[in-house]
Write a protein that binds this DNA or RNA. Structure first.
Length: 421
RNA sequence: GUGGUCAUAGCUCAAUAGGUAGAGCACCAGGUUGUGAUCCUGGCGGUUGGGGGUUCAAGUCCCCUUGGCCACCCCA
């Protein structure tokens, strides 16, 4: 038993899995940057106040926040999400709009860990501040959709809804509360508690005894102001124009108070229905202002690496193969030769590893095999004397003895292709 | 936060009814005094998650604790 191990809900990502994570980021960056988004890097630690507004939504928010007082007496928290930090950054730096950014990194929530749910978890996302145009909602959603496709995922469902303007939303919540409180068949005990805190969330319940009340509940669309309805229509028209499949789900809600108008979520039907949401987002007009900035609308989404990778596993896509080395240098003359040869190979842009500890040729060949190098470069006393090296294809091909000066060329241009010699 | 379940070698797992802890894989070495991936032989490897208790004797039974997993809660 090791004296120390990772704290609950936190883990090491070892190679080669870490390579997959890095490629995940790279694919996301490529999609976002193709649309003019730049990477924003914010601190993982911020003043508690930056996230305080999130607490107005569910009580879970404040309960699950990693917060503490630092040595200067400042109340701080590890970020539970990035959207609030983006808005804080906008308010702080006042960049010109539209401000289009993407991000990737760890977030922290003090939850009870289980598979696909960690206390430190990575998310990628994009946010745009300062544009009201529904076509921007369309762009953001389409980029998320494009990203899932870039990973190779096919069994993805996009669901969208609109919470309307803040006033619409407020009126709807009151109507919902009234409906649920007076519904004859009542609600489950859990939903009755949810109702006190966040009536919208009751719509999310999957408990059978709640379904009758939910089915009979008022529809948000009936509360949309003309402007909100028009915005939502425009979003749908834009998605259709781009050929992005979607389903309007009137019962889709998001837990936080800051969401306005468009909200959306991507689900994978390759996962259990209980946790099939890979990511989501929406509009949060007003959040920047709430954080001390100018009035500015915002829209964005975030998605989690863990669940998305699980979905990839389920669909058998985005399987990252370990990187192969070009060459593995086996030196049984003490190791100095290998130092020079690997340096030369690397300088030529090739990837090369070598054996250490002056182990036997057999042992070094086993390492070469394990490294999955394309070639073993073997050097012994004979080769040193002759100024040559043995180049052996590890796939079983014939090994050849080549002058040391031709080694790099031989590996860059495999035998059989250099017929002009 | 609530409930359930599990924890044995680096990994995946065995261990009859309490009776000295095993295998496969991996790793190391040799067979092959200059050659991997196959094969053969041998080796390294564990205070059975930790602590306490019952017992002549505990991996096995009891309590506590830590951690994983599952469900609920929550889900930004």
């Amino acid at each position: 038993m090791p004296a120390f191990q990772t704290s609950p809900g936190m883990r090491d990502i070892l190679p080669p899995e870490s390579e997959r994570w890095r490629r995940f980021d790279a694919v996301f960056a490529a999609v976002a940057e193709s649309a003019g988004y730049g990477q924003l890097m914010t601190p993982v630690l911020e003043d508690l106040g930056v996230f305080a507004r999130l607490g107005e939504g569910g009580e879970g928010v404040s309960k699950e926040m990693y917060q503490f007082t630092d040595k200067g007496g400042r109340d701080v928290a590890l970020r539970p999400e990035v959207t609030a930090s983006v808005c804080r950054a906008f308010a702080q730096h006042r960049p010109t709009t539209p401000w289009k950014v993407w991000y990737s990194g760890p977030n922290f929530r003090y939850e009870k860990p289980q598979r696909g749910r960690y206390r430190q978890f990575d998310q990628v996302g994009i946010e745009v501040v300062g544009v009201d145009d529904p076509m921007l909602d369309v762009e953001v959603i389409a980029l998320a959709d494009e990203f899932f496709r870039a990973l190779g995922l096919r069994r993805i469902t996009l669901i969208v809804n609109s919470l309307g303007e803040p006033e619409d939303r407020t009126r709807y919540i009151e109507a919902l509360r009234a409906h649920f409180e007076s519904f004859p068949e009542g609600l489950s005990a859990t939903s009755r508690e949810t109702l006190l805190r966040n009536p919208l969330r009751v719509l999310d319940s999957k408990r059978p005894e709640d379904q009758a009340a939910i089915a009979a509940a008022p529809q948000i669309a009936d509360f949309h102001s003309p402007a909100a309805a028009e915005h939502f229509e425009a979003v749908q028209a834009g998605l259709r124009a781009l050929g992005v499949d979607f389903v309007v789900e009137p019962k889709l809600v998001r837990g936080l108070d800051y969401y306005r108008r468009t909200i959306f979520e991507f689900q994978s039907d390759a996962l259990d229905s209980a946790q099939n949401a890979l990511g989501g987002g929406g509009r949060y007009d007003g959040l920047v202002e709430a954080l001390g900035g100018p009035p500015a609308s915002g829209v964005g989404f975030a998605l989690g690496l863990d669940r998305t990778l699980i979905a990839c596993d389920e669909e058998g896509v985005f399987q990252v193969l370990p990187r192969r080395l070009d060459a593995f240098v086996v030196d049984v003359t003490g190791g100095l030769q290998a130092a020079a040869i690997t340096a030369a190979l690397r300088a030529a842009g090739l990837t090369a590893d070598r054996g250490f500890d002056n182990r036997s040729m057999k042992a070094q060949m086993k390492l070469a095999n394990r490294s999955e190098a394309a070639y073993a470069v073997i050097i012994g006393e004979d080769e040193v004397a002759a100024g040559t090296v043995v180049v052996k294809p590890m796939d079983g091909g014939e090994q050849t003895n080549v002058p040391r000066s031709e080694l790099v060329a031989r590996i860059q241009r495999p035998t059989g292709t250099d017929r002009h010699d």
